[in-house]
Simulated scan of single mutants.
Amino acid sequence: MRAHGGPPAEALGTLVSAASSHNGPWPTISVWHGDRDATVSHRNSARIVEQWRSIHQLTREPNAVQRIDGHLRRAWHDTHGREVVEEYCITGLGHGTPLSTSGANACGTAGPYMLEAGISSTRRIADFWGLITAPAEELPEPAPQSRGAPPRSRPAPGGVGGVIEDALRAAGLMR
């Protein structure tokens, strides 16, 4: 949590490669961190980016630097020009998942560790991983739900909502 110890940054990618016999393309990764997170050191997110840059054999400097909804986003491209590593630094965010709870990009309800930030990590990551066809800016606003009440029906199998719910269940974060 505090970024103490561990292998040097240049060795991180080698450790992952050595731990796997995987021969196919490595997965893309999206790293998010709040600049006011007092629980997890920002150095940890930087080391994750360094690790995956090494795995993908990417340059040190990002290929793209931009502001998305007021937050810094850096992205690295593979030799085919495809973005394979992205990093967001969320201005003013403490320890939690960034949400945008209103407007066209609304997703989720603020609560413990689910923090209003004006940007939805869930929607952005789903877009980055190719799970949705419309860019996050063009996604329809979700139907309103009463606070605290679970949705009445489970999302369609194979849809973005179903994929996200399955992942949250597998992580033990949802029943």
Rank of each mutant, 00 (worst) to 15 (best):
A18V: 10
Q51C: 15
V31A: 03
S102M: 03
R53M: 01
G92R: 11
Q57T: 10
L131H: 12
E141C: 08
W32H: 04
V84T: 05
Q66M: 11
A134R: 15
N63F: 05
T97A: 13
G94E: 05
L115R: 09
G161T: 07
S54Y: 00
W32Y: 14
A149F: 09
Q51I: 00
A149Y: 06
P98C: 03
S100L: 04
S100A: 13
I164F: 11
I55D: 00
T101H: 11
G130F: 08
I125V: 15
G81N: 04
A126N: 07
A126E: 08
E165Y: 11
A167I: 07
R36Y: 04
H22Y: 06
D127S: 11
H80R: 15
W26M: 07
D78A: 01
I90N: 00
V16F: 08
R147P: 15
S30E: 10
V85H: 09
S17E: 12
R169M: 08
A149M: 13
I48C: 02
A136F: 03
H77D: 12
P27K: 01
I29L: 03
A9H: 05
G70P: 01
T91Y: 12
S146A: 15
A9I: 04
A104K: 14
R74K: 12
I29T: 01
V84G: 01
S102R: 12
R152K: 14
G118P: 06
G158C: 02
V85P: 07
R154E: 14
E10R: 14
R169G: 00
H22P: 00
F128Q: 07
A46L: 15
T91Q: 12
R60N: 03
D69K: 05
A38E: 13
R47A: 10
G130E: 04
A134H: 12
L99C: 02
G13S: 07
G111W: 10
Q57G: 11
R67L: 13
G103C: 02
G111H: 06
H77V: 00
A104I: 03
Q57R: 11
G5W: 10
I48D: 02
D69T: 03
S17W: 00
D69R: 10
G161N: 04
L58H: 08
G103E: 02
T101D: 08
